[in-house]
Amino acid sequence: MIDLTPEEWTAILLSIRVATVATLVATPIAIGVAWLLARVEFPGKAAIDAIVYLPLVLPPVVTGYLLLLTFGRRGLVGAWLADNLGIVFSFRWTGAALACGVMAFPLLVRPIRLSIEAVDRRLEQAASTLGASPWRVFTTITLPLALPGVVAGMVLAFAKAIGEFGATITFVSNIPGETQTISAAIYSLIQTPNGDTAALRLVVISIMIAVAALIASEILARRATQRLHGA
């Protein structure tokens, strides 16, 4: 087994916490956006569609800098949140989670949207004639049938969030114990003389986490599909 220093453990646990919170908070929002894009026609839909996918194509540094401008202490939204709700993102682990959530968002929306589009609308009509309001049609028919896509999206998002580097380090810097995730720790170690061995240990750990996430997604997706088509 690999022997890890307390600092390394801190970085690993922080990465897992940041990625978990980012995925869990982003998922309900992504489901809502995916449903809008899949099922509703409205003016400006093309623009929303483009904005959702923007983090995928923008340089991560740009996304991180935009987050800093918006959600930083003096940012328009950041100042308001800090003054009114006491929520601070800059140089905190919550900021790392926000950056990871934003970067992972397109990967979350895409499979959910595709699976919602694949849900047979005739089933939704049938539910409606049986007395289900649009909201209950969504929660009892659309969402359960789209579940494999939701699971796939969550795993992709988690994997992306755990490896996110550029936007996170730009937005919340690289503070051990607060914002230093595995990726940032590896980066710091590579910059340090004789840091190679320690960096390599973290590299192995991040590969293990990624493989575990892929296996978990495979198992979960298979279960969800079985539940839908089971006898």
């Binding site: 049938a126 409606s128 004639t129 049986l130 649009p134 028919i141």
Partner: peptide
């Protein structure tokens, strides 16, 4: 959903899940 009118479709449209 507020009409209370039942509808049996040509394809049964049972909920598979």
């Amino acid at each position: 959903h507020r009409r209370r009118i039942g509808y049996v479709f040509q394809d049964a449209r049972l909920f598979p899940q």
